[in-house]
Design a protein around this nucleic acid. Structure first.
Length: 801
DNA sequence: CTCTCCCT
């Protein structure tokens, strides 16, 4: 396959039908680093190739390789001034008088507290000096003069939509203002959701400081594995996914008097589902309010969705940001990024740089490159060189914290981030933003209903958000590493995640709450077929019965923060006597999918190290071996992980996940102890692999020719991924994911017996269920054998009596 | 013969 097509190979799979799901990814083999808007080197006719639209069609257009010293030619200067957008509800005294709706006077002790010498209503102590310092800054935020309006409109309505541009202060101030008034109402608290963990934590820290309270007291945060709240908490920042999870145990969100959904424009799947659920809660609960905050102009759609909710519009306040575009597309955006940074460092005045790249790998490489090439190279205003820091979600919290700290004296801070840095967080000192214009996104192919992760051009909304990061503390510059024409060609908004995702888990959750997923009030309804496929899958898993009601088993499945397949695997384990082992495996698969580190220059050593953990019949068991050894070496884990080419962060998160899953399993009344007595190695291996088969039978593959398998679900011819340690050449396999890169590969596989699959779901494994002859034949062989053995058993029985 | 944004 030629290079231009590799990226899209995932979209041209010949599979007949599948709901794909998390395990069906397509990642480009060669990391095609062509800059956004550049010409593709070979024809890519695929009609799913969203780049087609952005290609520069002229054949004679010279593609400039970025080079130093040609900056004047490469960048076109164009200053885009940020125009304040006027609030629909002007805060002008005259206007208010004319409308006759003078805002109510607030109770003084609940006001934000302007007067010096006042006591903090929460701590009873006088405010600190820092409080007054921050208060001065808060007064400058556009939202400050809209406090009364926010309180009034929220007071009079149960739905409110609030739109505020970057720098309006909505994320920190609106929840704060509202918690002053509603935070103690009926002993309930206010929650404010964020799409990202880092945002939830850093915003909570900031707001606690502004309110002069200790983090975790009146203001706290809650993200998976970390709950910094207490009985005193009146305002809780949390991730949208976490709040959605809470609905499983508390469908009416009875802990909360108000929920504020922030960054609704990001349209994460969790935010979309929450909006639908909370809309219902508003009707069912007298004492509940919903505020939806968004950054874009798409407010009308939200207003309409929430029964013509009133709109509060807050202008942004930013320092001017100059946008520079490339005049010609670049050949290699990574190289162009490095060069742009180098140029900024050497030629532009003092100020830190924020760079958007696509993944841990890319970021780590860039950090290393820049430390080497610019680490101690003096630049304008920074005589000691640069201080480069990575930022992505899976970093440990102390590494994330570093990003917000001052760099060493006389060094220029360079933060290289994924799109975690796109919204909500403010890194002081950032003056320059370098934006190659890409992000890694889930992509959905409607033809074969396949979900995959791809590097794709960002939406214009994202690009604007990114450039906004440059003007937070003073005037800044954004370097877009693509042409202005290319910018014009970007899609306006990011396509909602719910329209490009597998809905198995979501549909189970909705059914558990007795909601009809087909009639659910989605802001953007997913295709009905995706919902039907989810229902079908849940039926086979035994989570739903024939009438679509949630079974007792399905109810138990819905409690786990896992895909339904993995929940069922987990629930099958105690009876098989291998709860501990399966807990570890499920934790590894869901929380540490890529725990093996394989640096290219040490590939052989890394492979050798991995081999020590390998089980020849199962990669899942290999993961279990890694986990077990890791726990044994827990007190020297850093050293041990390094020596064994393992990603310590990944293993730490697997350990936390296992703890959480174990607690939940116990709460469901299952024993989490393993029965080791009576097991030899193979007995244990079989029990574990049976549990894996019970949940993952839809991710099964059968050998069709030498070293080649056919997936049962969608008849894709696949090979074992070269990273697999399975050497037994089994007839039947379970795979954790299917990736299509240079070839179609199944990754993380386990040998199973066909009979186990049949036992797992007899109504799924019927020969006529499958369109492929080979699959049907193999299944017929199984069912045939089963019938045979049953009649043999009857003969035996007859003989016995 | 190879490699994944975010979130529960």
């Amino acid at each position: 396959m030629s290079n231009g097509n590799d990226r899209w190979s995932a979209l041209k799979g010949d599979s007949q039908g599948s709901d794909g799901g998390r395990r069906y990814g397509g990642y480009s083999k060669q990391y095609n680093r062509k800059g956004y808007g550049s010409r593709q080197s070979s024809g890519s006719e695929s009609r799913y190739n969203s780049w087609d639209r952005y290609q520069v069609k002229t054949e004679d257009g010279e593609v400039l390789r970025g080079s130093q010293g040609s900056s004047d030619r490469r960048y076109s200067n164009r200053v885009i001034e940020t125009k304040p957008r006027w609030s629909r509800f002007s805060d002008n005294q005259k206007d208010r008088a004319a409308r006759g709706d003078e805002p109510q006077v607030l109770r003084k002790d609940l006001d934000v507290g302007d007067g010096k010498g006042e006591l903090n209503p929460f701590t009873g102590r006088s405010f600190s000096r820092n409080y007054y310092r921050l208060l001065e800054l808060r007064k400058k935020l556009p939202i400050y003069n809209h406090r009364d309006e926010v309180l009034k409109i929220v007071g009079e309505n149960k739905f409110v939509v609030l739109v505020g541009d970057t720098g309006s202060g909505k994320t920190t101030q609106v929840p704060q203002i509202l918690s002053m008034k509603y935070g103690k109402e009926n002993n309930k608290l206010i929650a404010c959701t964020q799409p990202r963990r880092i945002a939830a934590v850093t915003v909570a820290q900031r707001v606690a400081e502004e309110m002069d309270v200790r983090l975790g007291d009146e203001v706290g945060y809650s993200i998976r594995y970390e709950d910094e709240t207490s009985s005193r908490t009146i305002l809780k920042y949390c991730t949208d996914g976490l709040l959605l999870r809470e609905s499983v145990t508390d469908p009416l969100f009875s802990k909360y008097s108000m929920i504020i959904i922030d960054e609704a424009h990001e349209r994460t799947i969790s935010t979309d589902i929450l909006m639908g659920m909370l809309k219902q809660v508003v009707f069912e609960r007298e004492d509940f309010r919903l505020v939806v905050m968004s950054a874009t102009l798409d407010a009308e759609k939200l207003q309409k969705y929430f029964n013509n909710a009133p709109l509060i519009s807050i202008p942004g306040r930013m320092y001017p940001v100059e946008i520079k575009y490339l005049e010609e597309p670049v050949e290699d955006y990574l190289q162009a990024t490095i060069e742009a940074i180098s140029q900024i460092h050497k030629e532009e005045p003092a100020g830190d740089i924020l760079v958007f790249l696509n993944g841990e790998d890319e970021i780590s490489t860039a950090v290393k490159d820049l430390e080497e090439s610019l680490g101690s190279v003096p630049g304008e205003g920074h005589p000691s060189g640069v201080h480069v820091l990575p930022l992505f979600s899976s970093l440990p919290s102390n590494a994330i914290q570093k990003v917000f700290e001052d760099p060493p004296k006389n060094k220029r801070k360079i933060v290289i981030a994924t799109n975690v840095a796109e919204t909500s967080i403010t890194i002081d000192g950032i003056v320059y933003v370098v934006d190659p214009g890409f992000s890694k996104q889930k992509v959905y192919n409607p033809r074969n209903r396949v979900e995959s992760l791809q590097v794709a051009p960002v939406s214009a909304a994202s690009a604007v958000q990114r450039s906004g990061r440059a003007g937070r503390t003073r005037a800044g510059v954004t370097y877009r590493l693509y042409t202005e024409d290319a910018f014009e060609g970007l899609t306006a908004m990011t396509y909602p995640e719910i329209l490009r995702s597998n809905l198995n888990s979501v549909v189970l959750q909705l059914r558990t709450l007795s909601m009809n997923p087909v009639e659910f009030d989605f802001l953007d309804p997913p295709p009905p077929e995706t919902v039907m496929r989810a229902l079908e899958c849940l039926l086979y898993l035994g989570a739903l019965d024939q009438t679509g009601q949630v079974t007792k088993f399905g109810k138990a499945m819905s409690v786990f923060p896992l895909d339904p397949e993995l929940s069922r695997t987990l629930l099958a384990a105690p009876e098989l006597g291998v709860a501990q082992e399966v807990l570890a495996i499920v934790a590894m698969v869901s929380a540490a999918p890529n725990c093996f580190v394989r640096p290219l220059n040490k590939a052989r050593e890394a492979d050798q190290a991995k081999r020590r953990f390998e089980a020849e019949e199962s990669d899942h068991l290999t993961l279990l071996n890694v986990y077990t050894e890791y726990m044994i070496h827990n007190n020297s884990s850093q050293q041990w992980c390094w020596e064994n080419f393992l990603n310590e962060r990944a293993l730490q998160s697997a350990a936390k996940a296992k703890e959480q899953l174990e607690r939940l399993l116990e709460q469901q009344g299952y024993s989490t102890k393993s029965k080791r007595i009576g097991f030899d190695y193979y007995g244990q291996s079989i029990a574990i692999r049976k549990a894996i088969a019970q949940g993952n039978f839809m991710f099964s593959a059968v050998e069709c020719k030498r070293a080649t398998y056919l997936t049962t679900k969608d008849n894709v011819e696949v090979k074992l991924h070269p990273s697999s340690g399975v050497r037994t050449r089994p007839t039947w396999l379970i795979y954790n994911e299917l990736v299509i890169t240079t070839k179609a590969f199944i990754r993380t596989v386990t040998q199973v017996e066909g009979g186990w699959l049949l036992e797992s779901s007899p109504n799924y494994f019927t020969p006529d269920h499958f369109t492929n002859d080979i699959v049907s034949y193999e299944i017929a062989k199984l069912t045939g054998e089963r019938k045979k053995s049953r009649s043999a058993m009857n003969t035996n029985l007859r003989q016995a009596y």
